[in-house]
Computed example of a mutant assay.
Amino acid sequence: KDGALQVHRGPFDRAQVCQQYSLEPRDLQKIDTDIIINVPTIDVRQNRFICFSFRRLRSLVQVDRSIFFVPSAEKILRGSSGIKDTIHWERIARAYQRNVRYAYELYNKRFITDQLNNIDLMPFELRITEINLETVAHQLELKTTGLLNEFRQIREQAYTCITLGSLRELALLKEKVDKYKRHADLSHEAILEVLAHNEDMIGMYLTDNRKRDIADHTQVELLLEACTKEMAEVRRSISDLSNSVRTIESAIGFILNAVLNELLTFEIKINIIMMGFGIGAFIAGIYGMNLLNGIEQAPYAFYAVAGSGFCFLSGFISIGIIRLFRYIKVRLHRSNKTDIF
């Protein structure tokens, strides 16, 4: 409450934690950093505490202090395969520590350094509630900024030259954006859920625990509405990024389809030319038989047969290419409805 940060290192006994902070055994799942939280929640216990359970922020707010639960960077997780994923666990621990450090610095800057303690009449629990929700929004903003920079690099590479590497990076980026978009949506819904229940908003008053009317929670309501708008801005940024990723994905699909159509057109041209040469070879094969046909002694028979075969071959190839171009040509409007075949 006075802006001081105290660090206590574990391990801690679960029964002792429940007794010290007046928690129920089921509440430990919401503050246990070993458990992955996919659905953020804000749990309000009437005049006792406020529990924030988000992806990289586990906090327990009481009347005169806020307890943050952070995993140890020295701890090692073992997966089902028995491999020690130390790098992943250290990354998670650093994310928790960054959020706690940001909340600590923001609280001191806003309510201690700037001497707003005497000006702002909000009780401590509402102050730290605002700080926690702003920390969650700040975390998502940082992730959105990083993903936006990564998206710009992938977009430049994709428009310059489409490779398997750029397609793989785009697929991974889309997966990340969708994950953080879901997290932003769920965080926004967690705030709206508290905002929709008058009992929860009244229960958030820990300092002034007098009996209140069912609608006597204006201060909490204004605070949650402001946090909701801030989270909505984060959601909009992530949604815009998600739409941009889908747009570039569609553009790459159009480019690849155009390249595929060009390859198919080239293949059809080759087939038409080979078919024309096949007809010429058929004519040459007929006249190449050792059979009497009556024109063996004609002085210009060779030139006549070769010329007529070449003309027939060229005409067949030309007609095939022309009809192919008429078939692949796309027109938004054709005045004549004649068949192209």
Rank of each mutant, 00 (worst) to 15 (best):
G10E: 11
P11D: 07
P11A: 09
P11T: 05
D13I: 06
R14H: 06
A15L: 13
A15N: 11
C18F: 03
Q20V: 12
Q20M: 13
S22F: 15
E24R: 13
P25Y: 10
D27N: 10
Q29K: 11
K30C: 11
D32C: 15
D32F: 10
T33H: 04
D34P: 03
I35H: 04
I35R: 03
I36Q: 13
I37L: 11
I37V: 15
I37P: 01
V39A: 05
V39P: 02
P40I: 09
T41I: 12
T41N: 03
T41K: 13
V44T: 04
V44N: 01
Q46M: 05
Q46L: 05
N47S: 11
N47E: 09
N47L: 01
S53M: 11
S53I: 14
S53N: 13
F54P: 10
F54W: 06
R55I: 06
R56H: 14
R56V: 05
R56E: 12
S59A: 15
S59W: 00
S59L: 14
L60Q: 11
V61W: 07
Q62S: 08
Q62L: 15
V63L: 05
D64M: 01
D64P: 06
R65D: 12
R65L: 02
S66I: 14
I67F: 09
I67M: 10
I67S: 13
I67W: 09
F69Y: 14
F69A: 00
F69C: 01
S72Y: 03
A73W: 00
E74H: 11
E74K: 09
K75H: 12
L77F: 04
R78H: 14
R78C: 11
R78M: 13
G79P: 07
S80R: 12
I83T: 14
I83V: 15
I83S: 13
D85E: 12
T86N: 07
I87Y: 12
H88I: 03
W89G: 00
W89A: 06
A93M: 08
A95H: 05
A95Q: 10
Q97R: 08
Q97C: 08
R98Q: 12
V100S: 00
V100H: 00
R101P: 02
Y104P: 01
E105W: 02
N108M: 01
K109A: 11
R110P: 03
F111N: 00
T113D: 10
D114P: 01
Q115D: 13
Q115I: 08
N117W: 10
N117P: 00
N118E: 13
N118F: 05
I119Y: 05
D120I: 15
D120K: 03
M122V: 03
P123N: 01
F124G: 04
E125P: 06
E125W: 06
E125Y: 08
L126E: 02
R127Q: 11
T129V: 10
I131K: 02
N132D: 12
L133V: 07
L133Q: 06
E134C: 01
T135N: 09
A137D: 08
A137G: 14
A137Y: 02
H138D: 12
H138G: 02
E141L: 08
E141C: 11
L142C: 08
K143I: 15
G146A: 11
L147P: 07
